[in-house]
Amino acid sequence: MDAIQTLGLTKQYKDVTAVDSLNLTVRQGELLSLLGVNGAGKTTTIKMLTGLTRPTAGDAFLNGKSILTERGAVKEMIAVSPQETAVAPNLTVQENLELMAGVHGLPKAQAMDRIAVLQDRFGLGAVAGKRAGKLSGGWQRRLSIAMALISSPQILFLDEPTLGLDVLARADLWDMIRSLKGKMTVILTTHYLEEAEALSDRVAILKGGRLLVTGTPEEIKRCAGTDKFDEAFVRIVKEGQP
């Protein structure tokens, strides 16, 4: 079974079609990047897939569960790390992780085990007692992703995870995201083309709410007739078709 399958997924806001009849398939354990310029429909697609907004038409199935009729089951299997760092600033790192474990209904012992594993994996142990609001942007982003992983989601949505981070913090996060590959399905949105090329198994390029092309970074470059990924992206988006 595919991890995600969208069938004519559409979102209309008054006169604007934010996402137009999107048909997209994401395989189990795959890391797929959604690329596109501002207004391409990336965030709206993620909002529909995570149940934050209801499609105007079409449907999507996450591990076979409909986002329209099985929202509860969908919520149990997904996690989101939003574009802005969504942490509780007056809570410590440990308390933020406990909060997410609590809202996902993890039993106390299991929650503590999971928190210990994530603190170890993300190097958060040293700052466990520090308030999240006092952490640097890079550490907050680490915490934000760790919070998303607390429930061991089957599908993880990472919305611009490295936006605004310096080179070293970004490299650290890339390593963390790479370590997730194969363990869960990851949908990544990013404006950094080198990030999409380095991390993705496949890339989907959107423009004006429509899907222009999907493929591996190599396939995209071949398709656009260039050996540079950023050039390929620009060509595809400018021409509106591969």
């Binding site: 934050l52 989101v80 939003p82 997410m100 809202v103 996902h104 429930s151």
Partner: peptide, 17 residues
């Protein structure tokens, strides 16, 4: 304003919660 609620809206918490 900080998308914290948006994150929580994607969890199993209900409106009553």
């Amino acid at each position: 304003g900080s998308s914290f609620l948006q994150r929580l809206y994607t969890t199993p918490l209900t409106a009553a919660d």
